[in-house]
Design a protein around this nucleic acid. Structure first.
Length: 401
RNA sequence: GCUGGAGUCGUCUAGUGGCAAUGACAAGAGACUGUAAAUCUCUCGGCUUCGGCCUUCGUAGGUUCGAGUCCUACCUCCAGCA
């Protein structure tokens, strides 16, 4: 008996987008939604109270990073209990690390054409792909680890998030069509093996853990549409994917059309997670084209690096020494409500005192994550009130100028 | 007053005959999208047609093809002795 389901509440007229609710063992997720990223089971510098306070609904963690703790997490009853988060969770399969520790090692995952990455030399990579799976070398210890779809599913089922991702291979913008054909064939074979292995363990912790199949295929329409069809009908012993992950390295200008190719082929009644994106323009493109949930490290990482989100565009805190201005005039986050100014945060950030810096990372992360969570809340409301496009245009005009 | 030691880009600092001159911090600009990221890149004497040109290492002279580096005097600071 599956405790996982998805209801569509409202659709955007003439587009693939919709508002809905994902029901999981650990609670509901009102979509569209942003999932905070706590790779190791905890969001950097944010407590569970901080996260609940700013309206976060779900957290994404990573099976690769938690692989060594999976048994311990299972003993505690699963990730929601282990982390104290107590709300819906999702784990990534480690598929992102196939690229970030492999061909993309040391490179930036950019969406700008001019910065498109070149592939890291094979000998320098910490991840090597074969049809069987991936040989990883731990970035810190060098310890070798083999993870294929079976291993990824076993790890994820021990961690016990409400939603799992099939093990996939993320290609980079530097990979050509022929390589994407090869990688996609592998990702689809891994999807089948993931589904099969997942079926064996998806109730091991006493509740149902859902599985999403992940779509790759780079920027090519034939690959994207074909893989969407393949994964949509894929089944093992009658079991199918509960939803779908929309994966890939995208150029900004390609994002909308690629999502459209995928989501036109996918079944409407299953949720779709757009992996790894959360800048406002990407969110609007994603939502319009049928993505239900998002995750991204950007709000927290950029906060740590001094970039603060505001309704009229992002600011770099370096430039605000002594400023008495609030971070964002109408923000309802705990940091802004507590009255912290740009100058206050800059002073904490630049302080030589590690505790004050930690305070900065916390306050800035609260603000940026709340900014994106609130954007999702407002986007959802605009869909249910049938004024998505007006809301989007107004927001983008203010934000990007 | 005597004897030692020291004065280099905002700060600290490297430098003992070829230097516009090391490193760190501070400062400035940019990046970051399923987290090897409390990180990374660039700038940081002035001017530049980006090839260079000019002015710099307490001050003033001197030796030398060439001086932050050696010599002389002076100034300032520190330590010890008076």
């Amino acid at each position: 008996m599956s405790s996982f389901s998805f209801d569509i509440t409202t659709k955007i007229d003439g587009a693939l987008g919709r508002a809905g609710v994902i029901h999981t063992e650990h609670g509901d997720i009102k979509t569209p939604a942003f999932m905070v990223v706590g790779t190791h089971g905890q969001v950097k510098f944010l407590s569970n109270d901080d996260l609940h306070g700013l309206g976060a609904q779900a957290m994404l963690s990573n099976g690769y990073h938690l692989r060594g703790k999976a048994a311990e997490i299972a003993d505690k009853g699963g990730l929601a209990e282990y982390s104290g988060w107590g709300a819906p969770t999702l784990t990534d399969s480690g598929g992102f690390q196939v690229m970030s520790l492999g061909s993309g090692l040391g490179k930036v995952v950019s969406m700008e054409r001019e910065k498109a990455v070149t592939n890291t030399a094979h000998k320098d990579r910490l991840a090597h792909v074969t049809d069987k799976g991936v040989d990883f070398a731990d970035p810190f210890t060098g310890q070798p680890d083999f993870i294929g779809p079976e291993e990824s599913m076993q790890i994820q089922c021990q961690i016990g998030a409400d939603i799992h991702m099939a093990f996939d291979e993320l290609t980079s913008l530097a990979d050509d069509y022929d390589y994407n054909v090869e990688a996609l064939k592998r990702t689809e074979a891994w999807a089948k093996r993931s589904l099969k292995e997942h079926l064996k363990h998806c109730n091991d912790l006493g509740y149902y853990q859902a599985l999403y199949g992940v779509l790759q295929g780079g920027r090519w329409e034939d690959l994207r549409r074909a893989t969407a069809k393949t994964l949509a009908k894929m089944q093992v012993s009658g079991a199918q994917f509960d939803g779908f992950g929309l994966g890939g390295a995208f150029l900004k200008e390609d994002l909308g059309k690629i999502l459209k190719w995928c989501n036109e082929e996918l079944p409407e009644n299953k949720p779709r997670h757009l992996l790894g994106l959360s800048h406002p323009d990407d969110i609007f493109v994603g939502v319009e084209n049928g993505a239900d949930t998002f995750d991204c490290v950007a709000p927290t990482r950029e906060a740590r690096h001094g970039k603060i989100y505001t309704m009229t565009g992002n600011i770099n805190l370096r430039k605000y020494a002594g400023s008495k201005e609030l971070l964002d005039a109408n923000c309802d986050c705990a940091t802004c409500k507590a009255g912290y100014t740009r100058g206050d945060l800059r002073a904490l950030w630049k302080s030589g005192d590690i505790e004050l810096k930690r305070k900065y990372y916390n306050l800035a992360s609260i603000h940026n994550v709340r900014f994106i969570v609130r954007l999702m809340e407002q986007t959802r409301e605009s869909i249910t009130k049938h004024n998505f496009y007006d809301f989007r245009d107004e927001f983008l005009k203010n934000y990007y100028g």
